[in-house]
Design a protein around this nucleic acid. Structure first.
Ligand SMILES: [Mn+2]
Ligand SMILES: [Mn+2]
Ligand SMILES: [Zn+2]
Ligand SMILES: [Zn+2]
Lengths: 139, 139
DNA sequence: ATCTTATTGCAACATTGTTGCATTTAGGGT
DNA sequence: ACCCTAAATGCAACAATGTTGCAATAAGAT
């Protein structure tokens, strides 16, 4: 992803292509897997804390990024897929955190799981999984 | 649940039956659904913040309570079932947060869902659901 | 090049997490 | 009923993150 493309992405969502936003998008892009808040802050340092806070907020609100994991103290952020837009987030995937390498990734489960709670109106499902990732098992 | 029973519960887990712990257990018990941190703090006020922190930690470690919801800023706590012990937490239920009444409850889904991620070793699954609860729909 | 509005940067404050240490207390042993 | 000791509390102190207001700045439309 080039800086030019990120700029388009932001403009499509009525967001100005500012330095902090491009820095964040580049950081997330390079990081490959979901990026913990602490790593984002280090990478973008010396960014103003409030600016980072609002940058994350606006990008989340516009369906560009999403929180991928929030057990533990460090919150992980990841890019949304094409299914997410300014109107709504649409995530059918799960979030996997490896206890060995501490990496958080967005994964598509083989069988799409259907949760049934009779009498309830289910609007959003978040699934966080912990275990050992493929790479750490093979290695 | 009487105070006497709570004392036994604590002793079974090698924990002393102190005032802060009994206060917490009583608060959780009265609250019925999962209790947000802020409500716990108000209810137990004026409890020392550190004591509350360590009380929650120790009770979680010994399988007496667990975090029921941690999207949002307020973390919800709830009693563990009989399946949880000093050795390990064993939760097969999901956590439902009602967008209307803001209540968080532990729910047993009808079909037990099986998540399949080939190549990965799944050790723990946390499912958080948001929507409208049974009571709010009926009302 | 100018203008307008979104965005930033800073100050300031709030909440929660976390550790160290001295003091208190629960509960087992006598 | 009284000791004793380990466990637990209370307080100080610091760190990290969330959150708002406001003045200064800069992006992008004209
Ligand atoms: Mn994801
Ligand atoms: Mn639960
Ligand atoms: Zn791994
Ligand atoms: Zn409800």
């Amino acid at each position: 992803m080039t800086n030019q493309e990120f700029t388009e992405l932001l403009h499509n969502r009525s967001l100005k292509a500012t330095a902090p936003r491009l820095a964040l998008l580049n950081a997330l892009h390079e990081y490959k897997s979901a990026m913990p808040y602490s790593a984002i802050q280090s990478k973008l340092s010396p960014i103003d804390r409030v600016t980072l806070y609002r940058t994350l907020e606006s990008l989340m609100k516009k369906g560009v990024i999403h929180k991928a994991h929030q057990e533990g103290s460090d919150i992980f952020y990841a890019f949304c897929g094409h299914s997410c837009s300014i109107e709504q987030h649409q995530h059918n995937h799960v979030h996997f955190k490896c206890k060995s390498c501490d990496t958080v990734t967005c994964e598509e489960p083989k069988r799409s799981l259907h949760i049934s709670l009779p009498g309830y109106d289910i609007q959003k499902v978040s699934i966080s999984i912990e275990g050992i990732c493929k790479d750490c098992i093979t290695a």
